[in-house]
Design a protein around this nucleic acid. Structure first.
Lengths: 225, 225
DNA sequence: ATCTCCCCTTGACCTAAGTCAAAGCATATT
DNA sequence: AATATGCTTTGACTTAGGTCAAGGGGAGAT
């Protein structure tokens, strides 16, 4: 297991001794698609690291509308906040596909941080980046309309793929709606509109960026579609 | 200056030696109301701690609409994220009133964290709590309507004041609008509506909670006002 | 091959909340 | 005291996007 652990960015730069320690305290769990990992309000008893698969962390309104806060991919830790603040989970976590997850109990993990400053700094960097992502999400929700959010999403996915114009959505469109703070119907309409305007081309979950500059303008300001 | 430093929660539990070191690297700055501390896109060269006054951190849309991410009060650190993630500031910071701020340059601060695990853990706890706050903000923006956000705001202020029903807003209403992701006109209308419904009583910046349960229902779900 | 369960799309409708404009207040400054 | 500047409220109007309802397709299961 210590091999998987060494591959996790959070643990980069640690000594072999610490890898072994981590391997000693880690609990290895497997989940199939659609399983709940934790729910809002649960006690935060440790840190999770996703080894394989995909996990969404989300809020639910009483009416059932879902706002996804983050979709985690391989190698990413989650549930950290409640480890350090000693609070309950502020959101739900559920697998989007078959996943494998390592769980590190709180106390042992904190001990390790106390002893290894590079682990502390890694953790600080990760939390900082996450904070920054949330900042962007808040900006999107508050200052952009749905087309702008969608355009921004496409551009950011494209960037992750080294600027390719051919994108494959790795989450279903109804999940994407939840990530953008809207509902599937609206997303569907806006996709159709973007196609009509010649901004993108859509074929199922394949998206092709046709007019990158148009998308950029849309993502940037409140320009009308 | 080491006296002020000892009073900062972030530095709780440090040794006298570390207080002195911090005092050694800190830069003491004074600002009057309305001054920019940093702008979005600036290089994050250090950590700020607010000693006195009030600072808002906010995003601006191209049209000039403002979304406040956080209003910082005495003793709170800000601008930390860019210290650890080595990124630019994702938002603007401006004083809401005359303020005094200590600035800790990045490198020296990181050195100190490496040497003192309790500082690292304090920092982790603060970032975690901030992350949690952002989670609530996202939830509000995405899953609640403005009346619900406002009700939630009143309840949270009341909680901070040990559950008192008599609140004094410590920010102007137009700022509050920015914090709730809306505009002053809308806020004004909703306040009037809440008064009409007998939920609260308003006198300038004094708010009196009349029907706490009504506010709680409003804050909770999407109930109609 | 057909069934079935989702996922996705489209249409008609409605409402929360933003825009624009104007006027009333309050606080601080000279 | 007078003036200016920024905060707050109200009114009339517009619109993004949510709700409800009804179909259409694709992938795995039997």
């Amino acid at each position: 297991m210590s091999k998987q652990i060494a591959a996790i960015p959070l643990f980069e730069g640690l000594s072999q001794k610490h890898y072994d320690e981590l391997a000693g305290i880690a609990v290895d769990r497997s989940y199939k698609r659609g399983q709940i990992i934790f729910s809002e309000g649960d006690e935060g008893i440790g840190l999770y690291v996703l080894i394989a698969g995909k996990v969404k962390v989300f809020k639910l309104s009483p009416e059932g509308k879902e706002q996804i806060l983050h979709v985690f991919e391989e190698g990413e830790p989650f549930g950290e906040a409640s480890v350090f603040a000693g609070q309950r989970f502020p959101a739900h976590a559920e697998t989007l596909e078959k996943s494998r997850i390592l769980f590190f109990p709180r106390a042992a993990f904190i001990e390790l941080i106390k002893r290894d400053p590079s682990l502390a700094l890694n953790m600080l960097a990760i939390l900082s980046r996450r904070l920054r992502k949330f900042t962007l999400l808040v900006e999107d929700l508050s200052l952009k309309e749905v087309p702008g959010r969608l355009a921004a999403y496409f551009l950011s996915v494209s960037e992750q793929r080294d600027g390719s114009d051919d994108l494959k959505l790795d989450i279903a469109k109804n999940q994407l709606a939840g990530l953008l703070g809207t509902i599937p119907e609206t997303l569907s309409r806006i996709l159709a509109r973007m196609v009509r305007q010649g901004l993108i081309h859509v074929d199922g979950s394949r998206i092709k960026i046709v007019d990158r500059q148009g998308l950029e303008e849309l993502a940037q300001a409140e320009r009308r579609l």
